[in-house]
Nucleic acid binder design. Structure first.
Length: 497
RNA sequence: GAGGACGUAGGCAAAUCGGUGAAGCCGUCAGCCCUUCAAGUUGAAGAUUGCGGGUUCGAAUCCCGUCGUCCUCGCCA
């Protein structure tokens, strides 16, 4: 039997970083064992599910390159099956009708209600005290026939326990006495989560359920449903949660866009890099290696390498440089500057296009220049965005000047106001405008002026690129070319700023 | 409140089911590269393995307790 796993998000928001990691692990597991990776959208909560969320999740998965096998399953399409299963259990006497009127609880207070109710009922509440649990079939049928609304609850045995061997967390056991007769079908006929999941996993022939640890204790309920249905449970593997700094819960509401996959795509992250980072959050191959291609991850991945302790996704909302986990930023920078240039180029092209800096000559007459330039400037870049922001001066005459660069490298040396245009004049007579010749010209100029090489070079960098940091100036002069170098050296605009 | 899980440096984490001075990566700091730098390179600091007991010749690894964090407990998913 070929292994089949599924990623089953509910479309109530964008693709969350934790969900993305769950999807990745499912994908890696499936590919590692030669199985299928399926996608199921759990859209049974009509009030909160949106098509936009579904689209956003699909986009996120596509960006990460996690392509699913087979058709997407929309859970809401299977509601009839779920209902049939519930009524089937009712028929067999494994479930019963609960005619208790539905209470209306506000969603926001639910967690508090649970705690309060549990506190109040402490010690005296039995999970088997529902008055309708043992109603005779005749009475139950009669009330239903009379039109009384009812929910269907699973009838859980008085004594015994469920147990399963989780691939990550090991043996899990739970007494029946701790589990309430769970509702399978709402009084309006709407199937509930646990039933829907089990039915769909059965129908999709899922062999391994890999999901977040938040589902761990609820797994017992699902096992109870499998047992009632007379079907063997799949293997379970629960993943440790991803937490916010301080070990706090990472939530969309509190932490906002930092948890959304689209944020990283839009911030100029390479999917391969982010995927690599995500893979290392809660899993390790147990070796001294950090950079993995998708193929390598697939080859090395195993459930045994998954940790039990939650991982903290580190970031500092008040620090622009550390707006997200710095290992993620480092990982992306590592990819930007070391991946094969051919693979990087399309991403750079897209970035320059969106910034309106792209010119078709970059793939034609200026192909060599373009590739050399990208290769030069990528050394100090972190994201794709840097190519259009920090790298703007290489592709346009219209670029900004960094204030600290100007103050530190230009205005601190007022002589540069006349020296740099003078240097430009010298450049006019440099025939072969390349590394060595430029070095000689600047060297000679520096000597004449009795100043340091660095003063000239740093001033030129500020003037030519608008920045205080960047590649070697000899390379910058060369890549910008004689004409532009001269033009910018002569420019006086920054001196008037 | 009840059940459960987890706890190795600021973060990610390794350590063949107890055995040499507790890997590696990110971040931090410093030297070098003296043309910058958030790049490269070299190096440093940072951990009595949450804390307290116990078992043992020997414990991050086993046991007990304690504290902390998180998860679950809904006619949500």
């Amino acid at each position: 039997m070929t292994p089949r796993v599924r990623f089953a998000p509910s479309p109530t928001g964008y693709l969350h970083i934790g969900s993305a990691r769950t999807a990745l692990f499912n994908y890696l597991y499936a590919k590692h064992v030669g199985g299928k990776f399926l996608l199921r959208i759990e859209d049974t909560d009509i009030a909160r599910s949106t098509d936009e969320s579904t689209r956003s999740i699909l986009e996120g998965l596509a960006w990460l390159g996690l392509n699913y096998d087979e058709e997407i399953v929309f859970q809401s399409n299977n509601a009839d099956n779920h209902r049939a299963a519930a009524f089937g259990l009712l028929e067999e006497g494994k479930a019963y009708r609960d005619f208790t009127p539905k209470e209306n609880r506000a969603d926001i207070n639910i967690k508090q209600n649970i705690a309060d109710r549990a506190r109040a009922a402490q010690g005296e509440k039995s999970m088997r005290d529902n008055p309708f649990r043992d109603l005779s079939k005749e009475e139950s049928d009669a009330k239903a026939a009379a039109g009384e609304p009812f929910a269907i609850r699973l009838k859980i045995a008085e004594t015994g326990k469920t147990s399963f061997e989780d691939a990550v967390y090991g043996l899990n056991e739970r007494d029946y006495a701790e589990i309430e007769d769970l509702v399978l079908l709402r009084s309006d006929g709407h199937p509930l989560y646990n039933l829907a999941v089990v039915c769909d996993d059965i129908e999709m022939e899922i062999t391994d359920v890999i999901r977040g640890q938040d589902h761990l204790t609820n797994t017992h309920k699902q096992i109870l449903i499998y047992e009632a249905l007379g079907i063997k449970s799949p293997r379970f593997a629960h993943l440790p949660l991803i937490l916010a700094p301080g070990g706090k819960k990472l939530s969309k509401r509190i932490h906002g866009e930092i948890v959304s996959m689209t944020t990283y795509r839009d911030a100029g992250f390479l999917a391969a890099a982010f995927r690599n980072f995500l893979a290392l959050l809660g899993w390790s191959a147990g070796e001294e290696k950090e950079i993995y291609t998708l193929d390598e991850l697939t080859e090395k991945f195993s459930l045994e390498g998954i940790h039990r302790n939650p991982a903290i996704f580190n970031f500092d909302a008040n620090n622009p440089k550390r707006w997200t986990d710095d290992k993620a930023i480092w990982m992306n920078a590592e990819y930007v500057r070391t991946m094969p240039l051919d693979e990087l180029l399309p991403f750079v092209k897209a970035e320059l296009k969106s910034a309106k800096l792209w010119r078709d000559e970059y793939e034609d007459d200026d192909k060599n220049w373009f590739e050399k330039t990208i290769d030069l400037i990528r050394e100090r870049f972190f994201t794709l965005k840097d190519f259009s922001a920090q790298g703007r001066a290489y592709f346009s005459e219209d670029f900004d000047f960094d204030e600290t660069a100007i103050n530190k490298n230009l205005k601190k040396f007022p002589e540069l106001k006349t020296w740099l245009p003078e240097l430009a004049e010298r450049f006019e007579s440099v025939e072969d405008f390349t590394h060595d010749a430029i070095h000689d010209a600047v060297g000679k100029f520096t000597e004449e002026k009795g100043t340091k090489f660095g003063v000239i070079m740093n001033g030129a960098r500020a003037l030519l690129t608008g920045l205080a940091v960047g590649p070697s100036m000899l390379a910058v002069f060369e890549t910008l070319g004689k004409e532009k170098s001269i033009l910018r050296l002569k420019s006086q605009i920054v001196w008037n700023m």
